[in-house]
Write a protein that binds this DNA or RNA. Structure first.
Lengths: 224, 224
DNA sequence: TAATACATGATTGTATACAATCTCTTATAC
DNA sequence: GTATAAGAGATTGTATACAATCATGTATTA
């Protein structure tokens, strides 16, 4: 992916993760192409990449839509995050250098400060960075590869089923997890990560019948 | 991905996994397009998908090449497989229905028979199916999603560093693992899976300096 | 002879034109 | 009035033409 596509990719992904683009919304190639001053070709490449990350669902001859996660799909995401992150944090405890831990400490500090003048969108971003930092410390690029996607998906899931981001507790949890890693207390760190993920999941209101309409015509099309 | 692209995708992926296309070989768009009687457009889409699966590496303005895995990358693959498969097999023990276990049993039988008239390529395929079946039984689509890729990557890694596939021991291991799952003995199943993966990894000869040339010009380019 | 510059060919990257498909409207028949 | 069919518009899918880039080979010059 070259710089032009990367630019488009980052923008769309951010719009989805920041919940500017809501689940089920259609992403029309031509509109995006015109917005970025390019042809449809690079846009199509970006939409495909996003579909492999499950942030976008492409339906043949219909188009690309921001992914709607069913209750079951959402639970799968949390389950896989628990598996990967509990392993990652264990590896992190064993493998992180003192240098890396200091850097990690700074990140946690910044997150705490960011929370003070809490911008919702910044909170999403900071929280994601925290979790991905643990993946980095674990020294296996697949942790980062997979968790990058799963964490982005979590943002969409939260935008569907709840209002969890930016909670004060998130920051405190992160700080406790950091402390455990810093003291290289594997078992405690794993326990805290699992609890943390559980708490996020528990703030959600899983309603099978919930539907966010992508447009007014969508909302009313069955009522005429 | 539509049926046309799927056809191309399956063919190229199979050629890589079956080691017809060797690591570092270039995949020229035009050649592939002509071979399948299509334009470059769908071929490019397929190559991109394969690059997201890490079977192909795309270098800007140079082209697509079958991925070469470094020793470190190879070890990451095995490490992540151990994490995912040990979890998957645990879930499988808990969640698989009796019906699913019977089906699984048949698969193991077939694998044993296939081994008798052992075709190397069939052995690769059967072994992959076994591992992916466990991912299915675990009832979380991410197991299958991730392991599908990791298992394909393993084939390429074996083609670089060793000659492990099709061993008799593989089949026996699989049978033992199946028995453990069938008896829902989680801890035993996990232990056997970890041992099995370790043994595959141990048959490899990790040589940092190993290089498979993609062509003669590649081989001699540093010697002139 | 060695090094640089230029030209050529091959390959990938992008834009665009056209084909196929789907959706929604309108018209027609019953 | 309802249901079916035809048609227009919008959107995606594919092929192709052209642009950009890279690698190779040749020629020129010191």
């Amino acid at each position: 992916m070259n710089s032009k596509e990367l630019e488009i990719y980052k923008n769309i992904k951010q719009a989805i993760v920041h919940q500017k683009l809501r689940p089920n919304m259609q992403l029309v190639e031509k509109e995006i192409a015109e917005a970025f001053g390019v042809s449809r070709t690079p846009v199509r490449n970006v939409l495909r990449k996003l579909s492999y990350e499950r942030l976008v669902k492409i339906i043949e001859n219909k188009g690309a839509f921001v992914t709607w996660f069913s209750v079951n799909e959402a639970k799968e995401v949390f389950e896989m995050r628990q598996i990967l992150e509990s392993n990652a944090v264990r590896y992190a405890c064993r493998l992180a250098t003192e240098e890396q831990l200091r850097e990690f400490g700074k990140l946690v500090e910044v997150e705490l400060n960011t929370y003070q003048d809490a911008d919702y969108i910044e909170a999403i971003q900071m929280s994601g960075k925290f979790h991905l930092k643990i993946a980095e410390l674990a020294r296996n690029s697949y942790f980062h590869l997979y968790l990058e996607d799963l964490i982005s998906q979590t943002s969409v899931i939260i935008s569907i089923y709840g209002e969890s981001h930016g909670k004060k507790s998130t920051c405190l949890h992160h700080h406790h997890i950091y402390n455990a890693i810093q003291q290289r207390d594997e078992d405690l760190a794993v326990k805290l990560v699992i609890e943390h993920l559980k708490e996020i999941e528990d703030t959600l209101h899983f309603d099978e019948n919930l539907q966010i309409p992508a447009s007014l015509s969508d909302l009313f099309q069955n009522k005429l």
